[in-house]
Every structure is written in structure tokens, then in C-alpha cells.
């Protein structure tokens, strides 16, 4: 099967790549575009380490074909900060020790940003359910949930 040419936008920049027809978006991000911030923990949509935004929706990039993003807008963890200014989520994750090994962190940041973009004032329960697709094995989630809630408060201007 011939490789396909795909034109898309990643983190606001126009990007073109060639991919195998059944190659996942995750593999293309990592292996073709060197955007290795998006991680593979399972390859079957069960851990959320590969979370990205595709046309404004949160998805697992392991469960999307690269061929599908023709003409689309992809955003990854590398696009969360504004230049050198960290997003409040990134800052709170650092300040509140919401990461230990850090492998799940990119996926959590992308998913948490998707949550807060749609719901600026979530309850603890809402945060827990919204992030249930992101596995973390180090933290017991406590500090992650607090960091997300504190980021939300800051974004609302309450902190």
C-alpha cells in the first residue's frame, strides 16, 4: 500500500507528512514529526498517555489514523504553553508535585486542559471522572486532582 500524503496543522503550524495508510496518529507524531511528548502506554485507548486534541475534541492518538487528520487541527502537549509561558496547569503540576515519574503527565495536561476549557469550575468529582481515562500509577491521583482544581481557580481569577 502506497504511503499517503497528509497536510494538517499541529500546534498551530502547518505540517505535511507521509504515512502508511494504517499508521496511527500517535506513531506519526512520535516517529515522523519527533513530537515525543505524546506517550504510548497501551496502544488501545485505555491509559490516556497519548491524549491529543483533534479539531477541538480530546482523543487518544493511538486510536486515530494519521490519514484521518488531513485538513484537521491537532494539538499536543508541546502546544500547551504559550511560547515560554507555562499554562497554569503546567505550573500547578510543578508546584504541587503532581508528577512522580512523569510519563502520564503530558496526557493528563492535555485532558485537564480540555476539561477546563469546557468547564471552568469543575467539582472534585467532575475532575476525577473527566480524567478517568488517564492512568497514573505513581501518585494515587491526589496531587493531580488538587493541581487541576487549583489551576481552575487561578484561571477563574480566584487564586
Amino acid at each position: 500500500m502506497a504511503r499517503r500524503h497528509v497536510s494538517t496543522r499541529v500546534n498551530g503550524e502547518p505540517v505535511e507528512f507521509l504515512c502508511e495508510p494504517h499508521q496511527t496518529l500517535l506513531d506519526v507524531l512520535r516517529d515522523e514529526l519527533q513530537l515525543t511528548g505524546t506517550k504510548e502506554g497501551c496502544g488501545t485507548g485505555d491509559c490516556g498517555a497519548c491524549s491529543v486534541m483533534l479539531d477541538g475534541r480530546l482523543i487518544c492518538s493511538c486510536l486515530a489514523l494519521a490519514a484521518e487528520v488531513e485538513g484537521a487541527e491537532v494539538r499536543t502537549v508541546e502546544g500547551i504553553a504559550s511560547g515560554n509561558e507555562l499554562h497554569p496547569l503546567q505550573r500547578h503540576f510543578l508546584e504541587e508535585a503532581a508528577l512522580q515519574c512523569g510519563i502520564c503527565t503530558p496526557g493528563f495536561l492535555v485532558a485537564a486542559k480540555a476539561l477546563l476549557d469546557g468547564n471552568p469550575d469543575p467539582t472534585e468529582r467532575e475532575v476525577r471522572f473527566a480524567l478517568a481515562g488517564n492512568l497514573c500509577r505513581c501518585t494515587g491521583y491526589d496531587k493531580i486532582i488538587r493541581a487541576v482544581l487549583d489551576s481552575a481557580a487561578e484561571l477563574r481569577g480566584e487564586a
Binding site: 490516556g48 491524549s51 480530546l58 487518544c60 486515530a64 485532558a111 480540555a114
Partner: peptide, 8 residues
């Protein structure tokens, strides 16, 4: 599934 799965 998750919110990620719900996107698809």
C-alpha cells in the same frame, strides 16, 4: 470509555 474515547 473515557472522555478521550467519547471524542470518537
Amino acid at each position: 470509555g473515557s472522555e478521550q474515547i467519547q471524542g470518537r
